[in-house]
Design a protein around this nucleic acid. Sequence first.
DNA 1: TTGAAAGCGCTAACAA
DNA 2: TTGTTAGCGCTTTCAA
Lengths: 342, 342
Amino acid sequence: MSGKITLKKIAQHLGVAVSTVSKALKNSPEISMETRQRILNYVEKVNYHPNALAISLQRQRTMTIGIIVPELVHHFFSRVISGAENHASRCGYKLLISLSNDEWDKERQVTEMLANGYVDGILISVAKQTFEKGNFDHFSNLIQHKFPLVFFDRAPSDLPVDKIIINDVEGGYRATKHLIDKGAKRIAILTTPPHISVGADRERGYLKALNEYSLEVNAHLIVHVDERQPVREQIAILFEQNIAPDAIFAVNEKYAALALKLALQNNLKVPDDLMIIGFTDGFISKSTTPSLSTMAQHGFEMGEKAMEILLEKIEDKSLFDTQKIVFIPTNLVERESTKLKS
Amino acid sequence: MSGKITLKKIAQHLGVAVSTVSKALKNSPEISMETRQRILNYVEKVNYHPNALAISLQRQRTMTIGIIVPELVHHFFSRVISGAENHASRCGYKLLISLSNDEWDKERQVTEMLANGYVDGILISVAKQTFEKGNFDHFSNLIQHKFPLVFFDRAPSDLPVDKIIINDVEGGYRATKHLIDKGAKRIAILTTPPHISVGADRERGYLKALNEYSLEVNAHLIVHVDERQPVREQIAILFEQNIAPDAIFAVNEKYAALALKLALQNNLKVPDDLMIIGFTDGFISKSTTPSLSTMAQHGFEMGEKAMEILLEKIEDKSLFDTQKIVFIPTNLVERESTKLKS
DNA sequence: TTGAAAGCGCTAACAA
DNA sequence: TTGTTAGCGCTTTCAA
């Protein structure tokens, strides 16, 4: 802002003190009706807006919250952000969104920048690379300095922190159980490498369900997709084996959609020859034919809840040494890709 | 940050002046090697990070850019953001993302907040409601104050501003021409209401192509989707008419996917009975079976270019009174939903 | 080589 | 009712 209007300039122009202008702008009764009007009129005319930076610096309070997500393209993260934004603005806070691109270094940088005055608190879902690297120093630092921090969805497991997470084990269990209930016997899982907690947990739920219903666990039916390699080929393996699955549980929407596409290309009928269930209820799951059954994650609620807990911490410092862990339940959305075997 | 470390505290602890610490941190040769080391050691130990707010206030420069998008779920916007972020960080700038939720008031608020000290410049794609309302005052204000502002994708047409836009007329023309080339005769269009410029422009391109190839324009084949009503029903009308289209051009991915789904439900063969082409090359277009042909928009490049122009403006104030309009070309991605009629 | 002081734009306690 | 002053955390000029 080059020709920026400041309190000082206004005061000079009007021949009053800076503090007089400041008070008049707050409609303080200290200032006479007359001067107040004069000031207000002028301020209106020149379209003055106070400098947020200066106010924040002075108040030691920015009334804004930072949210850091690994990436934006996920429908789920978009929903979390909307939920967080919704609760924040209801409480008079603004939201600043930043990206880590799933990279450790980027995450560290952004976290520090936001924490250094920009925001009053941070909501974060941890980058994949950070899990791989196992270095959570940028978080421990903040915690040590009592900076308000709340994790959602992807949280470090060893740190004493507040977190709002999906009950992924239960979600994986219920998705698998759904397939079993529909009559599936050879259920494959498309999951992430074990260091990604959400994938690992969903896989745990899958194993639990198989066990409970005494279905054999077959290593050939468990695919740990490595995103650094072509995903399509890794999924395709499922269709090239002797023992073909009669159902697939994919731990995200992308893998589910890709599995469906490959199944159709292999002339399999879905759900008759092969059932598929995904995770995350985004637009893709609704768009395919047949549409995909899935475990909905309620990202919006997660965002709202995470923000709620963060704001509580910010406004009540006594909460500092307590940590909350909140589980957001998943729920089954039954569509065309799963149905009872006849 | 409660137990926040400041230059002052460091200076007190070490028994030196604030300015000495400040200089030492910048490795200024003014300060003797010895004190410099002493300070650096201590600073390292207590993990000091300067307050970004204070620096920005002092420098009158934040080294951060704000980007305001109507919504996040769109693949296209996510790509633009990534592109912008990429160029920004290469130039030493940070990116702050904010949402307008396609609402006028929210957009106004966020724009003002960012402009009031938070960022050095703004990249924005205008909210739908702002076009409906026709009130662009929050932008004119900034322009009047010479605040660096660059529009992308959705820009006000009457203001003298910098903008990076898709050549939507050409994109609509080429999509339609592609259908014509493949032998389509009765081409329908799924578009937005006329006040959304991108939809209107793509429709213009559609009409131009029909005209050029002497195909009849049929009002029944032109659907202006109103998102405030159920979208599905509005698209379904196309399949209930006497005169059925043999091809559909949808101005976005969502409408294209929905049209495909409805077509398949109506037992139409795609592309044999009906061809479909969309706009935006996102994950959905690849996921459907058959996969969707589409006009790719190159959001990443758009974001990069927009950021480039904005940073130029920021760093060279003499550019202030020139406005650039940059067109980003679209390109045809041919997939399974269109093919030559036999 | 180090320190004092002014100032970025604002608020708020205190004085006049 | 209005003005003066100090201070938020930092940088930078000028003086010591």
